[in-house]
Computed example of a mutant assay.
Amino acid sequence: MDPIELLNNQPHDPRDPDPWVALFLDRSLPMHERTKAALLVDQRSRSRQFLLPVVRPLARMYIVLFQVMKIFIPNRFTSSKWLHRLLAWGLRVWVSPEANFLILRHFHVGSEILDFIARNTKELNVPTSPIRPTNLEHVKDEIFLNHDLNLFNFVIRLNRALRDQGKTLTPPTRLDFSGVSDEFPLEELPDRWTNFLDLQSAIEVFTPVYQLFLTDRDFWRASNSLQLDETIAIYVATLLQAPGLVALVNNRHPMVPLTTLRAGFRLMLHGLSAESLHAFLVECKHGRMPQLARIVAPNFQPSSPEAA
């Protein structure tokens, strides 16, 4: 059943209210409806309830073991190409359609957030490398590794351009939302009896595999990239003159990186932060600002035709 229908049609018992339905109906934070429904259906799954508590400590144990192993043989098993082939197979065979939907959508969301910053700092000429997968075969194009590289490369290029031109990040006269999409063209995802694994369990299982097949430097960069959520949110908040946007972010303090043991949980927060930030941009694009008035400056001027 469609996740939206599943949550909407859930009967309401006042003596036993469903917490996932309550979260779905809540509109205190902007979020794409299909994405929110997929996330909550995934969170309420039996896989997350019963499998995650077993998988998580085992996965963290392997992270420690692989870290010790890489002290002695740092690059023995590294291959980003084979890693992504293995990830594509694992996603196709074992991971639920809701989780796969969230994973593929995340690359579009991240690409559009960086594109929004670049479009509204055109004088800096910062290039972007958007990643827009439409099916799980595109995972083989090393998109997880490239996603992390794109993020750090963007931060470096943006700030070098600002420094070289003697500028600071400032909002343009009129904001450009033309690169912000309401929907993404994702193909139908596998939904066989084997596709039962929830997103959090899948992340916990894949994290030590990710560590094993990547160099130590690549893995640490991937882990530390999660705390750049705060940095990217500050950029967007500066352009929108909406300082309250940073409150949507839970992965913070990139100059004090956390250990890799909690990378799986922080990756979930990373996805949530990105979705909330992108949904905020969609709301701004369409001029749906009343519910966001407290955190958006009163002189906000959208450039979208729909908001004119």
Rank of each mutant, 00 (worst) to 15 (best):
F101A: 06
I103D: 06
I103K: 05
L104F: 14
R105T: 13
H106L: 15
H106R: 10
H106Q: 15
H106W: 11
H108D: 01
V109D: 05
S111Q: 04
E112M: 14
E112P: 09
I113S: 11
L114C: 06
L114V: 14
F116L: 08
F116K: 08
I117D: 00
R119S: 11
R119T: 04
N120L: 04
N120W: 00
T121A: 10
E123W: 00
E123Q: 13
N125H: 13
N125S: 12
P127Y: 02
T128Y: 10
S129Q: 11
P130E: 05
T134N: 08
E137Y: 15
V139T: 06
D141I: 01
D141T: 06
E142F: 10
I143R: 10
F144Q: 01
L145D: 15
N146L: 14
N146H: 13
N146R: 15
N150A: 14
F154S: 01
F154C: 06
V155N: 05
I156L: 05
I156Y: 07
R157W: 00
R157G: 02
L158G: 03
N159W: 06
R160S: 09
A161P: 02
A161T: 01
L162F: 13
R163M: 08
R163Y: 03
R163S: 07
D164H: 05
D164T: 14
D164I: 03
D164K: 15
Q165H: 09
Q165A: 14
G166C: 07
K167N: 00
L169S: 00
L169K: 00
T170N: 00
P172C: 09
T173F: 03
L175A: 03
F177C: 07
S181H: 12
D182Y: 04
F184E: 08
F184W: 13
P185E: 11
L189Q: 10
L189S: 06
P190W: 09
P190E: 05
D191L: 03
D191C: 11
R192H: 11
N195Q: 11
N195F: 01
F196T: 08
D198M: 02
L199Y: 10
Q200L: 13
S201T: 13
S201E: 02
F206Q: 04
F206I: 11
P208A: 03
V209P: 12
V209R: 01
V209N: 06
Y210R: 09
Y210T: 07
Q211I: 06
Q211H: 12
L212Y: 01
L212P: 04
T215V: 14
F219E: 05
W220V: 09
A222T: 12
A222V: 07
A222D: 00
L226Y: 11
Q227I: 05
L228P: 00
L228G: 04
D229W: 07
D229V: 04
E230T: 14
T231L: 01
I232P: 00
I232L: 11
A233R: 04
V236T: 12
A237S: 15
